[in-house]
């Protein structure tokens, strides 16, 4: 009985603390961060949106995507991203990794099918297809591909877009980032940034950003 009474007293104190904590940590803190972020880093805080001209924007109506997020590409004139398990592909309302295990028969079939598809599309041997081209990313939104996968796509993109291979290779180099501080992460090619550059250089018509 005494314990029950003490428990009720402590729970009531807990309720008061929880209400105060909600005001401080659940309202003031996130709103303060939002306020400072919106003033100091408005472009990043709103999702690093870019227009089809490659300009930064915070207006979604003129954006062609986010510089941080990959998108589905079914256009031979452009570089392809990695396979995605997010919805029908690169769906930000349904982010997902396949979660298939290393011995999953389903995953083995998927990898083999993707290898065949990429090899046929790029006109190379199956053995030359890099791992990132045939595996779905963790987020389903991976904005990057490996420099190897980008190099593999250069001849096809060049032929389809009408640009010289050397020019495309140069664009790839411009959109390749190395490891941060030499040790963090992996060398990577930003696919959307690269594709925007290809669109610009080749003067391609796209409907990107039109709303």
């Amino acid at each position: 009985m005494k314990t029950l009474l003490a428990f009720s007293r402590q729970s009531l104190a807990g309720l008061r603390v929880l209400l105060a904590a909600t005001l401080l940590l659940g309202v003031a803190y996130p709103l303060l961060v939002t306020g400072v972020a919106q003033v100091a880093f408005p472009w990043r805080a709103d999702g690093s949106l870019v227009t089809v001209e490659g300009e930064r924007t915070t207006d979604p109506d003129e954006a062609a995507g986010s510089a941080l997020v990959g998108q589905l590409v079914d256009d031979d004139r452009l570089f392809r991203p990695r396979p995605s398990a997010a919805g029908e592909g690169y769906d930000m309302l349904a982010t997902y990794g396949s979660n298939l295990g290393p011995e999953s028969p389903e995953l083995l079939d998927l990898i083999a099918a993707r290898q065949a598809e990429v090899a046929a599309r790029e006109g190379v041997d199956v053995a030359d297809v890099p791992p990132d081209a045939v595996t779905a990313s963790a987020s389903g939104l991976d904005p990057d591909i490996s420099p190897r996968y980008a190099a593999l796509q250069v001849p096809r993109v060049a032929a389809a877009s009408g640009l010289p291979e050397a020019a495309v290779r140069e664009l790839v180099a411009e959109h390749t980032a190395g490891r941060t501080l030499g040790v963090l992460g992996e060398p990577r090619v930003d696919v959307l940034g690269l594709n925007l550059a290809v669109v610009d250089a080749a003067g391609l018509e796209t409907t990107g950003g039109d709303r």
Binding site: G97, S98, D132, T135, S137, D144
Partner: peptide
């Protein structure tokens, strides 16, 4: 390579 479910970056 073990890249299923991993991000390139």
């Amino acid at each position: 390579g073990a890249l299923e479910g991993k991000e390139v970056r």
